[in-house]
Write a protein that binds this DNA or RNA. Structure first.
Lengths: 231, 231
DNA sequence: CATCATGTTGGAACGCCGCTCCAGATGTGT
DNA sequence: ACACATCTGGAGCGGCGTTCCAACATGATG
């Protein structure tokens, strides 16, 4: 590769085959690192080419465009999150475990949230629907309602995760940030925002993960109420 | 022809005060039009300056940057959606009505979904939390759980709306699109994706709005189950 | 061993983007 | 009449995703 020091011969030495072959896998891996380090806007073909010591053409040979690269990075991260099927005793507990695992993944890779929210029924979403849906079936929900019930769970997970990720993006110091927002809330017009003022302290003190799992439990309660297991 | 915007009385000089004053309101209005016409990527300072027959400096005098303009556009649209408080008889029905109104708004302005999902607890979110939260209080949920319960509802709404908006973005012909996805699903590996294959026909035939409201009902059931009204 | 077809690389450049700078025109107070 | 704060819009900067293509490396073929 870089036999520096010697000026290239008559031919201007434009490019040469590398020993460490560039592969789609290596590109996606580098993309995930960039995304983790600097968020969605941190994934740039310019810094990617620099990191991989190559040019844009080489990357475009393996990947169609930036969108596909983002999708592939999301796939890789979600696959890792869903690798181990939960071994909890009840379907409820398994759903909680799955949601927990996804929450942790998005906490570690906040850029995944926006990607999942905006990807409709394609890309990584089917795999998530599959693993959650199996547990919905195990809950005893009638088959005719599988799609509805599983969609609700997954959409809540995506929505909560996006919110969480949006927080953590702006977030140097979480406590300071929440404190500032809570203070803003409590100073709103009491006539226009009585409710917000009341829950401001709850925002200040809440635990993201706990709230998220409380939401899962709430939805599980609703499922049990609407589709009683015994039949 | 181009008689859309008023053309300022141009002289050969560099610039001059216009008769139709440029205002933040007029800029936001134009931004909403561009976003509705071509999605989030359709809002460009270049197009915006052309539409308003001005230059970037004039716009930046009224608006800090693109992000603030997007937020202001979202605010305007959400405000309109929440203008009329629902007059239904029960809190449950009022929550359904609010969710319905937000669903319709995002259906008409799909770019709002991503904006709401990514805006954490600021911007337009407080107003939505307020109107939903009041009805949560009216449901008889204990005050200590107001934040949790309202968050779940709003996060589900945002999540489902994002999904819906993501669909409608790619969507020329909804039926064709869903049919294609459903066919893809039913051709997945039966061992790896038994659940997805089962619900593929339900995806093909589902009604977005119905599914969305079924989700709201499911969560309302959960609320009633966990916090019985009578006490 | 020489030649070629094929797969792969990376540098140059294109057209957009958000955004900044600033000279000049306008309206207001004195 | 003059100074000053407010407002305008054209020129241009650096960065982005993407395209194009000459230059290489390699395995197959003669």
């Amino acid at each position: 590769m870089c036999q520096d020091g010697a000026v290239p011969p008559s031919r201007s030495g434009r490019s040469q085959r590398r020993t460490d072959a560039l592969s789609r896998e290596r590109i996606v891996e580098a993309a995930v690192e960039l995304l983790d380090a600097a968020g969605e806007s941190g994934l740039t073909f310019r810094v990617l080419t620099e990191r991989l010591a190559t040019g844009p053409g080489a990357i475009y040979w393996h990947v169609a465009n930036r969108g596909e690269l983002l999708a592939a990075a999301t796939d890789a991260v979600v696959d890792a999150a869903l690798a181990a099927e939960p071994a909890e005793p009840t379907p409820q507990a398994r759903i909680r475990a799955l949601a927990s695992s996804l929450f942790d993944t998005i906490d570690a890779h906040p850029w995944v949230a926006a990607q999942l929210s905006g990807s409709s029924w394609q890309a990584a979403a089917p795999r998530i629907l599959e693993v959650v849906g199996r547990q919905v079936g195990a809950l005893g929900v009638p088959e005719a309602n599988w799609f509805t019930v599983t969609s609700v769970l997954v959409q809540y997970i995506f929505g909560a995760a996006s919110q969480e990720a949006a927080n953590s993006d702006v977030l140097d110091d979480r406590a300071t940030y929440l404190d500032a927002v809570a203070t803003t809330w409590s100073q709103l017009d009491p006539d226009a925002y009585p409710f917000i003022r009341t829950i401001a302290p709850q925002l200040r003190d809440h635990d993201d993960r706990e709230e998220f799992l409380a939401g899962i439990d709430l939805i599980l309660s609703g499922i049990t109420a609407q589709y009683p297991p015994a039949g």
